[in-house]
Write a protein that binds this DNA or RNA. Structure first.
Lengths: 194, 194
DNA sequence: AAAAAAAGAATGAACGTTCATTTTTACTTA
DNA sequence: TAAGTAAAAATGAACGTTCATTCTTTTTTT
């Protein structure tokens, strides 16, 4: 067990170093040697945990995506009303993007780049199902517009990435009232008009 | 003039090759040699037009961003009503993202990445002023919510990038009615409620 | 014929990955 | 428990390759 524990620590350190370096320098400017140095590990050691650089970045992506969705749906209760459920999930996601903004930033970068391979992307998307189910119910009840899940995600969730990036970049400062405003915009964009 | 013409052609070919290769392989996997080959030029020739790789990608970004905003505001008339003006600009942007999706894809990739340096990013953002002015007017007239321009952009415009990327990736097919739905979601998110 | 533009080949640095070796761990036996 | 040992984990140095960039020469333009 001591051995296994140690291994997990190293793997985590490598994943964390990958996130930080890719965030700050981009994938193109983060060599394995730097990742190793930041994780306080020999370059050769990386290859005990990951097949190659592509595998390292794929696994990092999947890890962070899982962390993201776990956070989003923690304590979410499917018996909530559609509106309450949406507000709950939305605010959890907003919370994640602000508190774990390093990780959220990494995801945003991956999502617009051919950095991640298709299978890993598919793997990452799987855990959003509860949100899709909620929307499904909302459409049936006439509370949410009958739109494709992609459009709903584009308007209800994705704008948070843009805001988070600009906050991280320092071009925009997000405070409590901004979050409330953003939530209102998100809900207005997908809710059925009376 | 013949000389200058020839030069511009080569520069354009280099910019276009950069866009295609970065789109398909990512910045980290597009060597200068490939860019040169695709532009049918010697690698050394690139350095007659650009200082280095960073400069090439910066200038490509600025070029495409200018093309984007020129397209968005072509024939836009500031005397339109706020709602009509917004619809006009929004649909021009949607048009651009669908018709020039290679170029839009490139911008989306740049926008979430430390690939572009800060000065070039600032340069690229400048030409959005007419839209900001329109929003300003809309807020004054009580037609558009009194939100930060970042939030307005996040909800009114940015979702198109997400939809475009997924369309390009083949996970989502955008047709005429989807565009109309997306427009409605965009407008609902930023318009004042009666 | 001089100047400008372009080319291909060359260069040194940096990269991802592997190799040979050492260190640590886990287990056996006394 | 202590010594011995085999396996696993980790390492730093090395490898071959690829990259961005430059150098020298050739071609094109004026």
């Amino acid at each position: 067990m001591a051995k296994l524990q140690k291994s997990i620590d190293k793997r985590n350190a490598l994943v964390q170093a990958t996130i930080e370096l890719v965030n700050n320098n981009g994938f193109h400017a983060t060599p394995m040697s730097k990742i190793a140095k930041m994780a306080k590990v020999s370059p050769a050691t990386i290859y005990l945990y990951f097949e190659n650089k592509q595998d390292l970045v794929n696994q990092t992506y999947i890890d962070v995506k899982a962390e993201y969705t776990n956070y989003a749906f923690e304590n979410y209760d499917e018996s909530m009303s559609v509106e309450a459920g949406f507000e709950y999930i939305w605010k959890r996601i907003a919370d994640f993007k602000l508190k774990e903004c390093e990780h959220a930033m990494f995801l945003a970068q991956c999502d617009n780049t051919p950095m991640i391979d298709e299978p890993s992307r598919m793997e990452g998307i799987k855990h959003l199902q509860p949100l899709v189910d909620l929307w499904q119910r909302g459409k049936k009840e006439g509370i949410i517009k009958p739109l494709s899940d992609f459009i709903l995600y584009a308007y209800a969730i994705n704008p948070l990435s843009f805001l988070m990036i600009n906050q991280k970049r320092g071009t925009f400062k997000m405070d409590e009232s901004h979050i409330e405003e953003a939530y209102q915009a998100a809900w207005d964009s997908i809710k059925m008009n009376a």
